[in-house]
Design a protein around this nucleic acid. Structure first.
Lengths: 106, 106
DNA sequence: TAATCGCGATACCTTATGGTTTCATGTCCT
DNA sequence: AGGACATGAAACCATAAGGTATCGCGATTA
């Protein structure tokens, strides 16, 4: 069977991490800034901010005493590749998604 | 934050389940048939064959003493919807995926 | 320099998860 | 009817996962 990149799927399997990704899509954020948006402790958020780069979904760079977290869109590639195996099956919702993209490309 | 359908992501977070989905893409299969393709016990496979319909990714129908498992492509919709939030970020790989689709649509 | 700030890391707890074994039940076939 | 067959379900186990509290350390800043 085709080798599957597992870590990106694992990273996406948690609701908090998906929310973090959506937040980072709009603004790069430090660990503390991300933590402010959740009820759990900073340590818990920090753990998610370890799983996400493990899955290649974000990149982190240290700047002084803080660390910036930025989304890495290419990290979604393995997921997209996998979904690509279902080309022939995709439904109308995907078709709509695609058609939206087509407009952009033309 | 946007409500997120969690179960489909959960279902996709396990390698065995992803492999099962790829198998079912080609042929509908019974529990036993799916089990034949893995080293783990039938009971373990059966558990996966409970998580998958929970996530809406497969449908199961009982026929006599066996149960057929079939992929449900629409179950991927929540995942696709979520990925849609990253439209502006998507990389070349997705672009290629899309362009393949464009050919089909024209 | 001293106090504070942002992080990282560790130890620990609880629950979820994937796995096994075993047993029960309904179905098919002779 | 009786046996074989396909599945379902329960009890149990080990480990992974998400959470907490706590301590340590480099970087800032008063």
């Amino acid at each position: 069977m085709t080798h599957q990149e597992h870590l990106p799927f694992l990273a996406l399997s948690d609701s908090t991490r998906r929310t973090i990704l959506l937040m980072l899509r709009d603004h790069n954020m430090t660990v503390a800034q991300v933590s402010e948006n959740f009820d759990v402790t900073r340590a818990a958020v920090k753990k998610h901010l370890t799983v996400l780069p493990d899955g290649g979904l974000i990149t982190t760079t240290k700047r002084g005493r803080e660390r910036m977290n930025a989304p890495n869109p290419q990290g979604l590639a393995p997921v997209l590749d996998w979904l690509g195996f279902f080309d022939a099956f995709w439904d109308d919702r995907l078709t709509a998604l695609k058609s939206g993209v087509i407009k952009v490309m033309q």
